[in-house]
Amino acid sequence: MLLLTCPHCGPRDETEFSCGGESHIARPSLEATDDAWADYVFFRTNPMGVTFERWRHAYGCGCWFNVARDVVNHRILATYAMTDPKPATSETAISNGLQQSAELAR
């Protein structure tokens, strides 16, 4: 069972939330190629480690927010606002995750 922390309502059971998948995905320009659009719509980073994802307090206040979560041990590493950048904390796990996504972005 995950214990997520809604920025508005505080810590609540995972059953009150719904996961919206990977966060920080930037929409390409309208002139982008079909490949770029396919990448935006369908392709996902799916690391075996830290992911950055959107969650919604669906059965609470309705707020969307971001979560950094280790998908192997299910630890929540950070909770932050929708418009915040990916957190750069001293957590080794987080920095690994950031490294991984930086590598993927290359």
Partner: peptide, 17 residues
């Protein structure tokens, strides 16, 4: 675990585990 191998090979997949 296919995306972990794709990561090693340097390409992305439309997949979530």
């Amino acid at each position: 675990h296919t995306t972990t191998l794709a990561d090693m090979l340097g390409f992305r997949l439309p997949m979530t585990s």
